[in-house]
C-alpha cells in the first residue's frame, strides 16, 4: 500500500507525542478504541481560561494511519476554540492524509478522540450543562 508523503511524515515525525496530567482541571482527556481491536488513541487538550486550546498531546497504539491521524489532529486543534475543534470532521483528516478506504476508520477514531477529550473537559469544568442551557 502506498502512503502519502504527509502521512509518512506524521508517522515518522509525529507531532505532540506525550501526556498531560489528566487530573488538571484545564486538561481534557479522550481515550477511545480498544486494545483487542488493535487501536487505542489517547488525546489530551489543555484549555485556557478563555476557552482556547493552548496545547494538545496524544499517544496512539494502532496502525501508521492512526498514528498520523492523531498527530495531525493535535496540530489542527491548537489555537482553536473548543467549538471549532469539536467541529473537525474525520473526512478532513482522511483527505489531508490521503487515507485509503480501509483506513478511513483510523481518522474516525481521531475525531472520536477529540470529541471525547472536549467532553471530558466540559464535564470537569461544569460546562456541559451551561452549553445545554444556552
Amino acid at each position: 500500500m502506498a502512503y502519502s508523503e504527509k502521512l509518512l511524515d506524521h508517522y515518522e515525525n509525529p507531532r505532540n507525542v506525550g501526556s498531560f496530567d489528566k487530573n488538571e482541571t484545564a486538561v481534557g482527556t479522550g481515550l477511545v478504541g480498544a486494545p483487542a481491536c488493535g487501536d487505542v488513541m489517547k488525546l489530551q487538550i489543555r484549555v485556557s481560561a478563555d476557552g482556547i486550546i493552548e496545547d494538545a498531546k496524544f499517544k496512539t497504539f494502532g496502525c501508521g494511519s492512526a498514528i498520523a491521524s492523531s498527530s495531525l489532529i493535535t496540530e489542527w486543534v491548537k489555537g482553536k476554540t473548543i467549538a471549532e475543534a469539536g467541529a473537525i470532521k474525520n473526512s478532513q483528516i482522511a483527505e489531508e492524509l490521503a487515507l485509503p478506504p480501509v483506513k478511513i476508520h483510523c481518522s474516525i477514531l481521531a475525531e472520536d478522540a477529540i470529541k471525547a477529550a472536549i467532553s471530558d473537559y466540559n464535564t470537569k469544568n461544569g460546562k456541559a450543562e451551561v452549553e445545554a442551557a444556552e
Binding site: Y3, Y11, E12, C37, G38, D39, G62, C63, G64, C106
Partner: peptide
C-alpha cells in the same frame, strides 16, 4: 502493522492488523 511500516526494508510478515480494517 505500524511496526512493519517502520521497518520497511526488512521483509517480515505480520499476522495482525486492526479488525476494523
Amino acid at each position: 502493522e505500524s511496526l512493519l511500516m517502520g521497518i520497511k526494508n526488512i521483509a517480515v510478515s505480520s499476522g495482525s492488523a486492526c479488525t476494523s480494517a
